[in-house]
Amino acid sequence: MTASNIQSVPTSITVRWELEFNLKLGEVNSRFLEGLREKRLLGTKSKSGDWVYVPPKLFCERTMEPCEEWVEVSGNGIVDCCSVVYISPGEKETPFAFGMIHLEGANGLMMHHLGGADPDAFRPGTEVEIVWADNCVGSFSDIKYFRPRTK
């Protein structure tokens, strides 16, 4: 027997899970996605009024108060911090920029792609505005990216 006809020792088997789920979004997320379909960015405000969540939350994570009041924000914001991705596991063409955005009218951050300009153009403090997908269908991907504010 020569080395070339020795078969390698089996060391693994291939297993595939092909499972489908219908994850329940809940009333709050459903209304948020419904808003996206209408190109509206909705959030909820904590009962004491000291925190606005976009995307919305059912309860305030900081105080556990219910967030019962709905608010709409403009989609304008300021980049808090940002990065340029050169190697990505996804299908999006690299390089691309993403960052954490302080939305006007909201208290926390929102992470999303930064586009409409050279990826290196973004800095902390860059004013940005929302860019909607051409066809909004009521999903997270209805937000295409945030671009440098033009107006």
Binding site: C81, S83, F98, M111
Partner: peptide, 21 residues
């Protein structure tokens, strides 16, 4: 999938945004 949008970002990119901040 039920809790966050798919932005094509992995753990390493989240690590990088902490470093950037």
């Amino acid at each position: 999938a039920g809790i966050s949008p798919d932005l094509g970002l992995g753990a390493v990119h989240i690590g990088s945004i902490f470093g950037a901040a």
